[in-house]
Amino acid sequence: MPTRNWIDLKQDALSGIETMRAHFEGHAYDPHWHDSYLVGVTEQGVQQFNCRRQKHRSTPGKVFLLEPGDIHDGEAPETGGFTYCTLYLDSHWLERELRSLFEQTPDNAQLSFAATLADDARLAMATANAFRTLHGEEIRIVRQTALDGLLSSLTSHLHWRTLITPDPRLPLVAQRARDYLHSHMTQDIGLDDLARETGVDRFRLTRAFKAAFGVAPHAYLIQLRLAKARRLLAQGELPVSVAAALGFADQSHLGRWFQRAYRMTPADYRRRCSNLPD
C-alpha cells in the first residue's frame, strides 16, 4: 500500500527560519533532535510523540514546543494520520530578538519552554500566521510583523534557565562523555575512548549516559552529526562532501540515517533549504 506521507519544507533567507508542513500516517520518524527551537501547531489528527521521558498527544489547535537537543520521535496512533506545521527557530536569532524586547535579561542563561504542549489559542494563531507568511514568501515587512506577533505570544511560555557547568542534575560521567562526543564528533569514536575519558567501565558509562540523555552514546553521536549535516546542507554543501566531513562511511550511510530521522534525503533537504544550484 503506497504511503500517504508528505513533507513541504522551505527556509526563510533573512531569518534562517525553516518552515515545514507535513502529514504522516503510522510511524512518522525515529528519535532525533534539532539544534533549533521548534514551535508548531497540530492541524489535523493526533500527533503522538515521546519527549523528556513523557508521551505527549497533540490534537488540533495545540502547540508543541521543543528546545534544542530535545530528543523526540513521532507517530500517528489513529487512522487518518496527522498534519502539522512547524517553525524551526534558530537559537541565536530567537535569543537576540527576545533580548531586544526586554530592557533587562539575565546573563549566562538559556531560553527554556515552560511546557512541551500548550493549549493557547493566541499562540496557535500566531504560530500559524508566522508559518503562512514565511512559507508563502510574503514581503519582508509582513514576515517581520508576523514574527513579532509570534515572539509576543511566546513570551508567556518562556523562561530563562541559568546555565550551570557541570549541571548538578546530571551525572558527571554522562556530561564528560557528552562533551567528548561534541569535541570529537567527526572521529571514529569507540566506547573504550569514552570510558577512558570518564574513568568508568563501558557498561557503567552507557547506563549513566542513557539515564541522563535518553539515548545511548552511539545514537547521540549520530544525532550530533545529523544536526551538523543539516546546517552544512542548508549552506549548499553537497551530500557526498558532508558525509566525508562528518565521519559517515559514505553518502549512502549519511542518507540512511538522515532519512530515518527527517523522512527526506540529504539531497532533497539541500534543494529545499539552499538557493544554490546542484
Rank of each mutant, 00 (worst) to 15 (best):
K55N: 14
Q44I: 09
V39M: 15
H72C: 05
S36Q: 13
E67P: 07
L66E: 06
I71Y: 08
A76Q: 05
R53D: 09
G45S: 02
K62S: 00
S36M: 15
L65Q: 08
K62T: 03
E75M: 07
V63Q: 05
V63M: 06
F82W: 15
A76M: 06
L87P: 09
D73E: 04
Q47R: 13
C85S: 11
E67S: 15
T86A: 12
G61N: 01
F49S: 04
K62N: 01
V46S: 14
Y37A: 02
Q48R: 11
Y84K: 03
L65I: 04
Y37G: 04
S36E: 15
S58M: 10
Q48P: 13
T42Q: 12
V41C: 11
E75I: 03
G69V: 02
A76K: 09
G74R: 03
T83R: 14
G80Y: 11
T79E: 14
H56D: 09
L38D: 12
T83K: 15
Y84S: 04
V46M: 13
Y37C: 08
T79Q: 14
N50W: 13
L38H: 10
H56W: 14
G80K: 05
L66Y: 09
V41Y: 08
F49C: 02
Q44L: 07
V41S: 03
C85F: 06
P60A: 03
F82G: 12
L66V: 00
L38E: 15
E67K: 15
P60H: 03
Q54V: 07
L38C: 14
